[in-house]
């Protein structure tokens, strides 16, 4: 629906929906994946697997036992009230929950807003935590830009965000002062985990962990790490490399790589490319696989329009199912 042939930045894709004052979710279909929730034209929440969401911030940090979170999910998921359930149970305060929501929103926005990815808008979709504070798109963009500047000022090479954190084994100075977060990073760096992995592990927001690692690199406490680490870190590194490459090439390769990504949200039985032809097992995976493989054999120009049609069909099917 929102698919455009020019493939704008995600933040640009959000503009029309925000300007129209609608409520729904813009789903990122390509890696690293994610969702930006809009309520009445304002940004309500954003999430991506590589950033720390409210759940990680609450549970991995030790603030709440995982059981308490799960209980709230069970009780509130269907009504989009996980957050209010936590507040009603006296586990967190409203202000704390709102703060974490804003922190998680920006953490995800940092990774998502400047991606060139295909995305589709799902009307009326809401986040199960429930919407807390909503923010102006422009102010979120400004904060994302400020974060990019801060990171670049601290240490210019972005590769450090996805590389294993390697604290220096010996220091030249006799004495160092660390912030509490820097201490957590150093204490948990196992010479494999990247800043992104550490943030997830510690339940801290990814941006501040990346910033502290870059600051420590600048002061010589951390070596500029070697590449590698977890799948999450790899995926961010890949996406960034792709974005950098896309800057210099035309839009065409972007479309192609977008096609290789799985068009994930399509477990719809009434799929068009799979007329069961009397088959007695209406399996879901079948049509999905068919779509995923179709463009793969010919990654040239030819497949492009087909893919876009199939995506439109998918979008319509999803909208139809949503309406049901």
């Amino acid at each position: 629906m929102s698919k455009s042939s020019r493939l704008p930045l995600l933040r640009e894709s959000l503009e029309p929906w925000c300007a129209a004052g609608v409520t729904g979710a813009l789903r990122v279909l390509d890696p690293p994946g994610g969702v930006v929730y809009v309520v009445d034209g304002r940004i309500a929440y954003a999430e991506t697997p590589v950033a720390s969401g409210v759940e990680r911030l609450l549970t991995a940090s030790g603030r709440l036992p995982a059981d308490a979170w799960r209980a709230a999910v069970t009780a509130g998921r269907a009504q989009h009230r996980i957050g209010p359930e936590l507040v009603d149970a006296g586990l967190v305060t409203q202000a704390e929950l709102e703060s974490l929501g804003v922190i998680a929103l920006h953490d995800a926005a940092f990774f998502l807003f400047d991606l060139v990815v295909s995305a589709h808008f799902e009307h009326r979709a809401r986040h199960p935590v429930g919407h807390l504070r909503t923010l102006d798109l422009r102010s979120v963009c400004q904060e994302v830009d400020r974060r990019k500047r801060l990171l670049a000022d601290a240490w210019p090479d972005a590769a450090i965000d996805t590389a294993a954190v390697l604290p220096q084994r010996r220091l030249r100075s006799q004495c160092v002062a660390l912030t509490a977060l820097q201490w957590e990073v150093v204490a948990n760096a196992d010479r494999r985990r990247s800043p992104i992995d550490l943030a997830r592990l510690l339940g801290r927001d990814t941006f501040t962990v990346m910033l502290e690692v870059r600051r420590m690199a600048r002061t010589g406490l951390v070596e500029p790490g070697r590449p590698g680490g977890s799948a999450a870190a790899e995926s961010v590194a890949t996406v960034r490399a792709k974005a950098a490459a896309d800057m210099t090439t035309t839009a065409l390769p972007i479309v192609q790589s977008a096609r290789h990504a799985r068009p994930e949200p399509a477990p719809d039985p009434p799929e068009q490319p799979a007329p069961p032809a009397g088959e007695s097992f209406p399996h879901v995976p079948l049509p999905r696989r068919a779509i995923r493989q179709e463009p793969a054999p010919h990654p040239e120009l030819a497949g492009m329009p087909d893919f876009r049609v199939s995506e439109q069909i998918l979008t319509r099917l999803i909208a139809g199912l949503g309406a049901l």
Binding site: S99, V102, I103, R146, D205
Partner: peptide
Amino acid sequence: ALVDYTSGMALG
């Protein structure tokens, strides 16, 4: 303003 001083961001 209510500010998060790990990131320097105004939460509200």
